[in-house]
Design a protein around this nucleic acid. Sequence first.
DNA 1: AACGATCGCAACCGCGGTGGG
DNA 2: ACCCACCGCGGTTGCGATCGT
Length: 255
Amino acid sequence: MGKCMAKDGNTSALRRGAWSEEEDSRLRRCMEKYGAIKWCDVPSKAGLNRCRKSCRLRWLNYLSPSIKRGRFEDDEEDLIIRLHKLLGNRWSLIAGRLPGRTANDIKNHWNTHLSKKSTAKEKLWNPKIIAKGTAGIKPREKKGEFKIIKPQPWTIPVNWSWLKDQPGHQGHLQDKSGINVDPLPPSANNINVARKKSAAVIPEKLDDVFLDIDGMIVGEMQTSFEVGNIGGNGDGEFFLQEDAGWASFLLDMDF
DNA sequence: AACGATCGCAACCGCGGTGGG
DNA sequence: ACCCACCGCGGTTGCGATCGT
């Protein structure tokens, strides 16, 4: 195995592998005593012959008092599956929605249990989105064979038929207080739908805008469409198969 | 009882992002 | 503008525990 980060400095004599009780209690005492300090200071202050990353990992994934241990409840699993559809493998974001669970826990749990569960479910539905520029694919012709395309950014015209007149469905924007701001701001030329990592892609002026679809407010950076709620756009560029399940995106407004 | 296969989780690795100098 | 140290993340690995034959 390697070294603890060539990039982060010399590693040679640093201890690796499983943590002893003594090391745990040293780290715990250090964190209790100094609180939030730079991780690079932790090994020396704690008297540990470990690299800072090892200390950080041990604290964040195991020793921190905020960590909830034990088996995952059904509702937690359900939430993870939904969030994973929404966010992909962004474990830290998912963990942010599950108090007490660490990204590592969730990732491990996903890889050992939920990925199979989810795959089984996924066979029951078949979300499909055809991104602009996806050459040669005609949504309706390919019905039933689509997959979510990621992480390409996609542009949906604001006059996208689903947004304005999809029968039986409504898509509209709300501010944080839940007040509708329909119709879409006239200055909005496009809604870019992308799997982007950073909130910074959202212009500040839209910081307080949520997308609400059929009454489901899903958050300031992301939205999800219950598959079946979405029709095609006027140009045939976007499409979702009508079926059960979720398709998901992060939302970015392009003015 | 022995042994290989599988599981579950802790820990490590390497990369990208960020901020300070 | 550039460099560098640090942080945080997701992917991967290692290994003890458990299961199945």
